[in-house]
């Protein structure tokens, strides 16, 4: 790959100084270039136009990273919670979930749907572990399952808050708790789907190594490119 240095023109005689190496001067350590034509010393600095876009891009990519990660975390947890809520009749006929016979309906379409659901949950958990691999696997699992559990119990939580307030301030609350059997069903399905989604940690660990190696390779490539650029440019 041919690397073209950025232009640097002598302000006095307009000689192109781009290919002259800017050695750090012995007095101040500034990247000084002495013009070979007129002997004028100039300091090589980045152009403010480039600096603006560079800083803009950095901030933009950092904010995008935060928004994407948080959005994916909340979206993934909401999706798993949705799966738990809608899967009451997916595993068994009358919503009577039995972990021994998770696909007791015998309906191949429903069984396929259930497998796809579990596969999606595994994929989501895998993405979470990959996204938060700079922290730890346990952090990713805890945040994913904790958020899912919070979404699953949000109706119960709000009813509890309202009824507590009603007791405290003596007013009649018309909020009703979800049925006990409904909550139990939710928790059992969450336990089953959650534990199945944990299988996504295994491919995440394998992929994490590959991604990290790829990151390191990319960083090395970039470093080499910059060094080469600096050799020509400075």
């Amino acid at each position: 790959m041919r690397i073209v240095p950025r232009s640097h023109t002598c302000p006095s005689c307009l000689t192109e100084l781009g290919r002259i190496r800017a050695a750090p001067d012995p007095h101040y350590g500034l990247p000084v270039v002495v013009c070979p034509s007129c002997s004028l010393a100039t300091v090589r600095q980045r152009h403010p136009d480039i600096e603006f876009w560079r800083s803009f891009r950095r901030v933009h990519s950092a904010i995008r990273g935060v928004v994407l990660r948080i959005g994916l975390t909340i979206g993934g947890a909401a999706l798993i919670a949705l799966f738990v809520m809608v899967s009451d009749d997916m595993f068994t006929i009358h919503g009577q979930f039995s972990p021994e016979y998770p696909f007791a309906t015998g309906d191949p379409q429903l069984a396929m749907g259930a497998l796809m659901l579990l596969g999606t949950c595994m994929l989501l958990m895998m993405s979470m572990v990959l996204l938060y691999r700079h922290r730890s696997i346990f952090f990713a699992i805890a945040i994913m399952l904790g958020l899912t559990l919070f979404i699953l119990t949000i109706d119960y939580t709000f009813v509890w808050i309202e009824r507590t307030m009603a007791q405290l301030f003596a007013f009649i609350s018309d909020a009703r708790y979800p049925r006990r059997s409904e909550m139990m069903g939710r928790f059992i399905r969450f336990a089953f789907i959650g534990s199945c989604s944990l299988l996504g940690v295994v491919p995440a660990l394998l992929l994490g190594g590959i991604v990290d190696r790829s990151d390191r390779r990319r960083f090395r490539r970039l470093l080499n490119k910059r060094r080469k650029q600096r050799r020509i440019h400075d």
Partner: peptide
């Protein structure tokens, strides 16, 4: 807290 949680150390610098 969110930035520290979501971003690796080198990506936090712009924020």
């Amino acid at each position: 807290r969110i930035v520290v949680m979501a971003l690796p150390a080198r990506s936090r610098v712009p924020l």
